[in-house]
């Protein structure tokens, strides 16, 4: 008898849950949604989040606001941990910096969140890398010169554990080059400047940033005109007419780069998640937003929730293979 009652109760609650799911989605969103920014005002994440907010509002029905909130700290960990601790009701979302945000989980550092458990809504943008040197001050004129180099290659870069550093560590390890990192630069534009000044020999740069840096009506006047690509990380044909990692037989390396993926609190009801993900996809593919991205050198790379979730899984599996290199680079002190 008791078991019948229990079964009946369970069945009823299941029916209620199924019935309430569309209702939740219909109601959602009733309150403003906080779009967290894991870094301070002014940077790339801040700008793209703020720009995306109004489009997201539009595709969520336009009744609630998308409130951008900077929550910098712990190199992005603070905002992700904050998101993970919210009630799973879609009230908070965050644009993750992948693979940077996954690193603490991969190397076993305390983070307060797990990227494998985040509910992923979709990807907004991505970037891939090239290796650049200074045409004027660089000792190595080509990637062949680098591979043959007898002395240590000096690479100005941000600190260990950052996306650029991780990609560098994996790339040079695969190519059998032992680099010496000149770390501590605050951003890619600063270490690109370091290469031009001759602080080091070469560095890794996002292709979009490189194009932005060297674009000018008069090439001679381009701000970073001295930067010269020597290797492109891709399995396709090089955009810059330089050797590629694919041509060097390093097909795996093509995954190296950065992905801007939006997630929400783990355990968010599917109906709410779907509504958020749908709106996000429409926002990212809105022609106005796409045009803006192209204009400012931040082209969009939309992926839906399912593909973004799959991508996070792939990224995690890829980077976890290099756990030892990444742990070593993260603990590296001089």
């Amino acid at each position: 008898m008791i078991s019948k009652i229990t079964t009946g109760a369970l069945a009823l609650s299941a029916v209620a849950m199924i019935a309430s799911a569309p209702a939740q989605a219909m109601d959602f969103p009733k309150k403003n949604i906080t779009f967290l920014i894991a870094y301070g005002p002014g940077g790339g994440f801040d700008t793209i989040t703020r720009k995306l907010g109004p489009y997201l509002k539009k595709y969520l029905g336009g009744k609630v606001n998308i409130v951008a909130k900077n929550l910098p700290g712990g190199r992005g960990k603070k905002a992700a941990a904050f998101l993970a601790k919210r009630k799973p009701n879609g009230s908070h979302i965050l644009m993750f910096n992948m693979p940077g945000h996954a690193m603490p989980n991969i190397i076993g550092e305390k983070a307060g969140y797990d990227v494998r458990k985040i509910d992923w809504l979709g990807r907004v943008a991505q970037f891939r890398y090239i290796i650049v040197t200074s045409a004027k001050k660089g000792k190595y004129k080509s990637i062949q010169d680098v591979l043959k180099a007898k002395s240590q290659i000096k690479i100005p870069i941000t600190g260990p554990g950052t996306t650029g550093y991780l990609a560098s560590a994996i790339l040079w390890n695969a190519l059998g080059v032992q680099p010496k990192y000149i770390t501590g630069y605050k951003s890619s534009s600063r270490y690109a400047l370091g290469v031009i000044r001759g602080d080091g020999d070469l560095t890794i740069l996002a292709k979009g940033s490189f194009k932005k840096y060297v674009s000018s009506k008069k090439k001679k006047r381009a701000a970073f005109k001295d930067l010269k690509p020597i290797l492109e990380i891709t399995n396709g044909k090089s955009e810059f007419g330089v050797p590629t990692t694919g041509e060097m037989g390093q097909k795996d390396l093509a995954i190296l780069g950065g992905d801007r993926i939006v997630g929400t609190t783990p355990g968010t009801p599917k109906a709410i998640k779907d509504k958020l993900a749908g709106a996000l996809y429409k926002a990212v593919t809105d022609p106005e937003f796409v045009a803006w991205g192209n204009k400012v050198g931040r082209p969009v790379a939309p992926l839906n929730s399912k593909d973004a979730t799959k991508l996070v899984g792939q990224l995690y599996s890829y980077y976890v293979q290099y756990k030892d290199i990444l742990s070593a680079s993260n603990k590296k002190t001089r």
């Binding site: 301070g40 005002p41 002014g42 940077g43 801040d46 700008t47 703020r50 720009k51 951003s187 534009s189 600063r190 400047l193 932005k212 840096y213 674009s215 000018s216 006047r221 381009a222 701000a223 970073f224 803006w292 204009k295 400012v296 050198g297 931040r298």
Partner: peptide, 26 residues
Amino acid sequence: FGIPGSAETAVFLGVLVLHGIEPGQK
């Protein structure tokens, strides 16, 4: 170079980008 000289300028650069203007030489 499009590099902010101060924290305020960093946010100001963000405003320019939001308005579709790329800071720096351009």
